[in-house]
Design a protein around this nucleic acid. Structure first.
Lengths: 260, 260
DNA sequence: CCGACTTTGTGCATACGTTCACAAGCGGTA
DNA sequence: TACCGCTTGTGAACGTATGCACAAAGTCGG
């Protein structure tokens, strides 16, 4: 991983010598590069993509790393490094062509394909997700909804029919679901997850406050509101402690314990 | 940051020599330790806390790092290191006392205080958040709801009255709101954020798909569904590419370009 | 056509986080 | 009391991510 300058490697690409002019991008190159992108960079790429889309809508055609970095809230060197994972599509002295960059990031993120989504658990959150317009418009059509409550099945939510969870395997297969969203109560989450996995879903977005156990080949992302709140709480407390120490430093301390 | 063994430092603690027996934890110690906890570890501590609470409810009184790590989905060395940031509250040869650990983690995360929450934007997501029971029960009472739509103000949601966003400063001050949740459309998010900040809120949880610009002293966490989906999409694509390369390796390739 | 200026792409140094491996410490047992 | 086995707590090695700083590479004006 340390050294991958474009030189002595690329051994695999043997065969005839017809394309001998520029580097010429092979599918192996793309694969190799995609493998090497750090997860943190992937998350940022998604952010850049959104910023760039906004720029494009406003008629901006070219943008420098400095500008884009500012809009995305990161340092420009990091941004350039992130973009270099995607490939070298900038023009020195000028910047990046917005459209070009958008299409290359979309390609790397796999957004050239549609990814059908299934949402399991039609409670408050499930409703919100089903009605959320941001998914379909960005290439993630919600293809199916599931719940365990028979009273809910059949009645469409946000225009999408609700199936009983027992039908998850057949419906997921039929609709080619590639991403499963778990919006159930915590008690049900692991069971739902197991069903999704056995239905062939390999990517899961989990809103339930539990740690899901899955096989290695399944990718899980979790969105945990309680954890987010507690992280914020930690920062509130840290600030308060700092303030307390500041105050106290002007007064003199010693064995003062913990917290009143 | 490298060396902070419990030995030659701790210079500040001068004054009388009354508590001269054990190390005796000073408020400065706690502050210092809290400062040193990596963000990633804080997030995991919140997860451990939830697992431990579950354990406690099931009557478990003692747990080893191995067991807890398994339940939390991390490696046990990492778990022990994370817990060591909190302090040394385990017993060698035995494990950790669940109750003790819970209370210490709660203290570090600042959960001994209530943190009032304000939710801005009463759309699908705002409704879901207002009705979500997980917040109040974990020490994060939703103290206020805000929206810009006059038709919504006054009508309670989930038992909580909705205020007009123009009243945000006074209401936040009165209710001592310490955490603001932004659940508005993206166009409104920055303006809402600015208002929250000028109302004195220093911690923000942002659900809107925009990069918020805030002063340094404000802590922002973002929950971005589109980004999460795109990260998953990336993994789908990566898998597909790997499969493609595998297939193709059995056939022989060269200058094959990008993607059909 | 050339030289000055701008901005990218990246080698290198640093900081951070993770993992390993083991000594220190504790409870149980004889 | 002395030993033994188990589990913690942590130094040290490793790997990954971040940020700096600059050469390379392009544009633009003259």
């Amino acid at each position: 991983m340390a050294g991958r300058r474009g030189e002595g490697d690329e051994v695999v690409t043997a065969s005839p010598k017809k394309t001998a002019e520029p580097p010429a991008e092979t599918v192996a190159d793309v694969r190799e590069r995609a493998r090497a992108i750090p997860e943190a960079a992937v998350a940022r790429l998604a952010v850049y993509l959104r910023v760039l889309s906004g720029m494009a809508e406003q008629g901006v055609t070219t943008i420098s790393s400095e500008e884009l970095a500012g809009a995305a809230g990161v340092n420009s060197a990091k941004l350039r490094k992130d973009l270099s994972y995607v490939g070298s599509y900038g023009t020195r002295g000028v910047g990046y062509d917005v459209e070009v960059l958008v299409s290359h990031i979309e390609r790397i993120l796999g957004l050239t394909r549609k990814h059908s989504v299934a949402v399991v658990g039609i409670g408050n959150l499930g409703h919100a997700l089903a009605n959320y317009g941001g998914f379909p418009s960005r290439g993630f059509p919600v293809a199916a909804l599931f719940d365990i409550d028979p009273d809910l099945t059949g009645v469409p939510v946000g225009g999408i029919p609700v199936h009983h969870i027992d039908d998850i395997t057949s419906v997921c297969a039929e609709r080619e679901v590639s991403i499963g969203v778990i919006a159930t109560p915590p008690q049900a989450a692991q069971a739902v997850c197991d069903r999704l996995v056995s239905a062939g879903v390999q990517c899961i977005l989990n809103f339930a406050p539990v740690v899901l156990q899955v096989p290695d080949y399944v990718e899980v992302r979790k969105v945990d509101l309680a954890v987010e709140m507690q992280i914020l709480s930690f920062h509130v407390a840290r600030r308060a402690d700092e303030a307390a120490v500041d105050v106290v430093n002007g007064v003199g301390v010693d064995g003062v314990v913990i917290r009143p």
